[in-house]
Design a protein around this nucleic acid. Structure first.
Lengths: 119, 119
DNA sequence: ACATAACGCAACCTCCTGGTTGCATTTAAG
DNA sequence: CTTAAATGCAACCAGGAGGTTGCGTTATGT
């Protein structure tokens, strides 16, 4: 990815975003994230109750989400509560908007080119 | 994920979205997708030239993107061109918007509750 | 005080993923 | 026609991801 091409991708670091997407790229984790989006923090046990896997597996998934900054963890007494964290979500949305915008303007350029060529 | 809770996630199938996010959840693939977002289709060789891996590896990544519907493939003579495909991107954006919206309205409810409680 | 609920840690296992190599095939170029 | 480019296919490999089990530790509740 260097100089042979008009590289205007302008993305400071794809890597960061790929971490976010990778965290959401598992159906179990996406379901957990989706469930926490109502704002209510939940303990690991509660989140594990209706999952068809072990508490430990859910714990691992929650830690992946936490490492990606999508979720926050607060220990309350003997239980550890995980809560939705919107920052990285906004980042991901902004990135996808940027990519979509690049595509749209490419379409615009093509359209005006064709129209100018035709008319 | 059943009935013990006010499950309004309203997501028909988390799985589909997780496939999209998983496809974007690799820095190499995200870079490829980002690069194709300018609308210009590119051959595998061109896309492999400035990647620090084998053509076969790039091919595999492109196929993952294609399987997720993020990219389209058209064979042109002896070379196969991959082009950006915006549909699934829009889907992913819409989903993230939905989640963010759920979070925002949860915040709103909390805010009005606190204000009503206080004043 | 004691039982138990909620959790962490670590070992372990299996399978998928990212990547490579070698070779065959199709297509363009000279 | 012959050569080289662009790709496909298949086998293979190492490492990581998802998941389980067992056990220890810390709080809660009674």
């Amino acid at each position: 990815m260097s100089k042979t091409e008009n590289n205007q991708s302008n993305v400071t670091n794809d890597g960061d975003f790929s971490v976010i997407f990778a965290a959401l790229g598992d159906s179990t984790r996406l379901a957990l994230f989706d469930r926490l989006s109502d704002g209510k923090p939940r303990s690991i046990s509660v989140l594990s109750d209706d999952a068809d896997m072990t508490r430990q597996a859910v714990t691992k998934h929650l830690r992946v989400l936490e490492a990606a900054g999508l979720v926050q963890n607060h220990r309350m007494g003997r239980e550890s509560h995980y809560a939705f964290c919107p920052d990285q979500l906004k980042q991901a949305r902004a990135y996808l908007d940027q990519v979509a915008g690049r595509w749209d303007s490419a379409l615009m350029r093509l359209k005006t080119f064709v129209e100018g060529d035709d008319g």
